[in-house]
Amino acid sequence: MKPFGYARPRSVAEATRLLGDDAVAIAGGTDQLGLMKSGIAVPERLVSLSGLTDLDGWTRERGKGLRIGALTPLTDLETSAGFARILPVVPQALALAATPQLRTMGTVGGNLLQKTRCWYYRDEAFPCWLKGGTRCFALEGDNRHHAVLGAEECVSASPSDLAPALIAYDASVELRGARGGRTIALADLYQAPHGAKRAEHTIRATEVLTAVRIPEAALARRATFLKAMDRKAWSFAVVSVSVAARVRDGKARDVRIVLGGVAPIPWRARSAETILEGRALDDATCRAAADGAFADAEPLKDNGHKVTIGRELVRRALRSLADA
């Protein structure tokens, strides 16, 4: 790792002042240090957010929904019985993400902002498009782990298990910059890398992600998280499926289907959601929606299985909402 300067501000305002193009935020460090050790990121300075204790923890206020501080360790959401009563899909997703140690160290904000695990991106020797190079090596190379949906110049796959689960609840994120804050839909924190924008995230270099919010109305949804992995634990998703819906009188409303591991960003299968709106979650309907979710899939040479597996997991996840 290249030596760097280090600061540990006590307030968000201070942090935003310190952040910049050469001064990068670090929370748990489980992704940031990995990138730095492999030479992918070489910041001059690190701004540790660990002193922003206000951002650690979650609250629920009646009528105002749920607010999760960006510095909350993943473990705290995974193991809190109170939290599980409000949003059980999150602990479900987290239990299958990484390992206990990584969940103790890793934070909510860091998980949402982690970079792709594409093995070409992560190997310093490949000057790939996403890192500012001229081409995506995965197209000609081994692309078993790559995207089947929504890719432009770069076919990397989105790694987070948490992001799709939260997007299924219409989460938004609060961002604070030196000149004030903004709140955007969590889904809009992501944008498939394209053209001049060679990053998966839309956060600015000087912004701090302070919190994730879930609207009260969305909390009435039930949800399921399913994940296919290359081994039984400690694996990024081959495909992850987060589905949520309000089910009343056997009919589904506000259906959300969000996929991980299949596109450069968490992928909302909107047309499939539409198929289900107001319908009963019977097997035929769920199957049709599952097919719809992957209707636009363009599998690469090595990743056709993602489509087969993805369809089946969407179908199962939707069916489980009916049974719940």
């Binding site: 600061a7 540990r8 501000p9 310190l18 001064a23």
Partner: peptide
């Protein structure tokens, strides 16, 4: 301890 609002390092 690193001071609140300034950078320390990169030295020891």
């Amino acid at each position: 301890a690193p001071k609140a609002s300034s950078f320390v390092g990169p030295g020891a």
